[in-house]
Simulated assay, not measured.
Amino acid sequence: MRQFISALLVSMIGSALLHAETLVIPVVGQGWRIKFEGPVLAVESQHFDADGLIYRGNAGRFNVSAYVENQPKGGGESKACRDYFWQKAAQNPMVQKDSVKQWSAPLCECVEYVTVDESLGEKQTLANINCCFEMLGKWVDVHASVIAPTDEDTRMLKKLGESLIYCTFARPKSEPQEFEMGAMGRLRFVVPAAWQLGNHCVTTGIGTAEQHTLALFSPTDPNKTWKMTFFNSSMHYKTQKDIEMTAQTVQQAAAARSVEGAAKMEAIKLKQGVGCQAVFTDAALAEKPVEPGNAKVICTGLVAPQPDVLGTVTVFADDGKDADFLAAIQALGSIEWMAEKKSE
């Protein structure tokens, strides 16, 4: 259900490299996160299991991935981790051997190199960096690359390695947060104490509206995730009936695959604007044991804090009565929209 709803509510459209910001990869269930400087992402995905995670993000020509896994027998610190991952990566025949540079950043061991792919009849060059480190019994490889790199792109990759840190999650505190949403204005809402902010992704494309996606996550449970995507809508939502009609259409497939069988729509009472949400239990997972990466329950919703601004909402958990899940749904009512951009 997670993959279907995500594909349904958020269209994946192209993006150019944007200005740098601090990117976050949460290692949920392990109590820590990875942070580094990189371009504003357009899309990202994560897969969790009992041993660690696989993360992927994209921003036009820039791609980043992270692999967190248990140490092999014998273990070792960051240099051993680098040697382990690089031994595999170096077997790639596209690696230009004379471009390989190994160096030590403050908190990781790095390998920079160039790959050239001519398999499709055209030469494609990529600048790459692998940043490896050990943390609490886990080995981590953060890999980033840029297609057709410029000198500025190469410097950006080096800065990524130099800026990479890993640290425990910040102490949670329930408070309002504000987010710049491009030309649309600013979003403000209360982030509950049980949730941490992830990345703010921006997706743009030719002839399509700019989309801003906010990701939130639970520090302790990989099956608790929350995403909201906002964009300018050609259809204006001025009444509760308007938005509920659209929500019924969007939620038909989820309802058909759920234990509930139909949407039990509830209004989201915004200070200004309209919204609604419904909760579904995945019939295929309801009676199965809890499994990382396969949440059993989803809240799907739509909010229109302004008539021409539409937001899609998905919140995942394993129990519809979970306190954190309910806190996220309640927090939707705190959404406010400021049409003007914040003055510098």
Rank of each mutant, 00 (worst) to 15 (best):
D117I: 12
E37F: 11
K271M: 10
A144C: 08
K224S: 07
E210D: 12
L332W: 07
R61A: 15
F85G: 03
S15N: 09
M245H: 10
L157P: 15
G38V: 04
N58F: 05
S258N: 07
M338D: 13
V315I: 12
V10G: 01
Q87V: 01
G31E: 04
V202E: 12
E122V: 12
L197E: 09
G261S: 11
F231M: 13
K73P: 01
S234K: 13
K264Q: 09
S334Q: 03
Q124M: 10
D83P: 11
P289I: 10
A323P: 15
A263Y: 03
A105P: 00
L157G: 04
Q277C: 12
R61S: 14
W139N: 08
G311K: 03
N63W: 05
V290D: 10
V142T: 08
M235Q: 14
V190M: 05
L164Q: 02
A215P: 01
Y166K: 02
C132E: 00
S174A: 15
V259H: 14
V24D: 14
S343Y: 02
A193M: 11
W226H: 10
A105I: 02
N199C: 04
V100Y: 05
H200A: 06
M228S: 05
H143S: 11
T208G: 05
Y84V: 02
P307V: 07
N223K: 05
L53G: 00
F325E: 08
T300R: 11
E118A: 13
G76W: 03
A295L: 02
F230T: 09
K101I: 10
D51F: 11
S258A: 13
G161H: 01
E109F: 02
F48L: 07
Q196H: 13
A59F: 13
Q306L: 13
K296Y: 02
G52N: 02
A59S: 14
G14Q: 14
A304K: 00
S163N: 03
A209S: 15
G38Q: 03
K341G: 12
Y237A: 09
W103I: 09
V191E: 00
Y237M: 13
S218F: 07
P222D: 14
V190P: 01
D322I: 03
D221A: 10
M235W: 12
S119C: 06
T314Y: 05
V309H: 08
A89Y: 11
I165D: 07
P292R: 08
M245S: 12
A262R: 15
E210G: 02
G29T: 00
Q248K: 10
W103C: 07
Q277T: 09
Q96D: 08
C110G: 06
C167F: 03
F169G: 09
M1P: 14
F280S: 04
D322G: 00
A66H: 08
L53W: 09
I34T: 03
K227L: 15
T150V: 02
V64R: 00
V309T: 11
L9P: 00
V259W: 10
Y55S: 04
E162M: 11
G198I: 07
I147H: 15
A144R: 00
F179R: 00
K264N: 10
A267G: 03
V100A: 05
V146S: 00
I54G: 07
